[in-house]
Design a protein around this nucleic acid. Sequence first.
RNA 1: CGGGCCGUAGCGCAGCUUGGUAGCGCGCCUGAAUGGGGUUCAGGAGGUCGCGGGUUCGAAUCCCGCCGGCCCGACCA
Length: 581
Amino acid sequence: MRWSNTFIPTLRDDPADAEAVSHKLLVRAGLIRQLSAGIYSILPLGWRVCRKIETIVRDEMDKMGAQEFRLPALHPAELWQRSGRWDVMGDELFRLKDRRGAEMCLGMTHEEVFASIASEVRSYRALPQIWYQLQTKFRDEPRPKSGLLRVREFVMKDSYSLDLDRAGLDHAFQLHFDAYRRIFERCGLAPLAVEASSGAMGGSESIEFMVTSDAGEDWVASCGACGYAANLEKATSQLAEVADAAGLAAPEEFATPGVRTIEDLVRFEGGAAAEHQIKTLVYVLDAAGREAPGPPSHQIALVLLRGDHALSEQKLRDGTGAVQARPAQPEEIRAALGASAGSLGAVGVAGIRIVADAALEGRCGMTTGANKDGFHLRGVDVARDVRVDAWLDLREVRAGEACPACGAALGVAKSIEVGHIFKLGTRYTEAMGALVQDEAGNSTPIVMGSYGIGIGRVMASIAETHHDANGIIWPVTVAPFEVVISVLNPGEVEPQEAGERLYDALRQQGIDVVLDLRDERPGVKFKDADLVGIPYRLVVGPRGLAEKKVEWKRRRDGLTRELPLDRAAETVAEAIFEERR
RNA sequence: CGGGCCGUAGCGCAGCUUGGUAGCGCGCCUGAAUGGGGUUCAGGAGGUCGCGGGUUCGAAUCCCGCCGGCCCGACCA
């Protein structure tokens, strides 16, 4: 390609509405343009990067024996109604009607479609299968942000494993785990594989691939000592024992005028330290759970935590089976408990579901609200005074707490989710009637797994982690071009011809090269090459040409060498072959 | 969905308080010089001032409504 007739609209200024580094750089370097909130056009340079990422993904998928499909993006409502997700997915599912008024939606993922196709698999002998596609997903995110990191329309590699049993699923899951490792590594990323919540997807086990970055939106707890890593939605830690004072014979009410928060009560004369308080939160859960179809019903629940602990809403959802969980409104709280936030407690409460964090188990001498505005109870013995329906892990882990595996201090870092793999089980295959006959002739639902990688998010994550003050620094494996030849005096015959010869020679070696013959000042070409992030630059200018040499510069670290003109193509090609892997 | 900020040329912005024929920088086009890190000079093109309504002799500017975008929060497979 020639730079002059390739559409590379670089910008000098950061776009005003961009915050994330990758957003600024991808726009400035001319890879993407925004069309609407969370909707982006991929420009030629961006598309080159995406295609290289896709090629790596396809290569690794094909290596595990997966077969590529192309499924529709437009789905009939009926499909989603069958799995129950039509009601569960809420506003995130783009819904529309066709001309006859039939309800449809745009696919946010493809478990339903693949499972319905899988219903044509009738015999265990046809298993296992791994099916995949690269295709556009639509999710009406409440808040798109950070350029390509969180969007409403994006391309995903999604794959689905079909197996006769759990052991088969475990194997397919492991194949994906290993393939994902290689894919990200080849893209220049080193994501952490972390335990994650499966959320509304359902299933028994899931692992996210997380790239540490401030632009990320998930928090990951990880242990530098033993390698334990988990999304904060799932992470646990070891807690130090708290010594309780001898309890009272019964809870004792005391006046606490003006006390509204845990902190207030810590400071209050006759109050209690936070770890000796019970935090009482009121939540509204949809009780239907994820198995039952139809619109969910709602239920008030009390959520109890140690005073100094924070609730993880995802753990609450996971622990209770709720799909939605939201804090109750003040009126709902008053109706349920007869008091307002600040004086709430679970002692003596009947007829309301009570879930408690495991850290409260066996505690006594605790202080909590009395369900009477301006009053609290002290001397509460949890086992004796509170009717707990379920003990759950509800607490959000904090940095510095002890690793559950080895006891070392956990770190917590912001991360971008670039991939997620799920062991789904039989939820979708049962719903879609994807049953096979096993060896004994019994009909049994296919066991399914699902696995996703966001292509655009991978591209943005690379930009997010590979850049400097001058622009992006693409790894050779995904770079829009591997080499740029900057000809400094394009108006003169000799440099131009030298540039063209180099260009032809590199093309012949199979190198992805762009020739910059634009009538621009050298500085402009250098700035553009750096901004766009091309890994290698060859400079053909009068200075070197006088000695039959060209300058070879590596973007990554600025390493510069003089190469003899007649050997340059060969030398550069060798270096690139080395880095392609 | 709650809170905040913002829509003026391809990009970045000023003008709005105090209404009077729309401006700056970059980029773009033409010409000249220059030629190893966004060079310089001269000339030029380009705008329904987000949309609709109102007030006014007159609205980018004041008022009302709507739409769109960004950030924080809620939410998020």
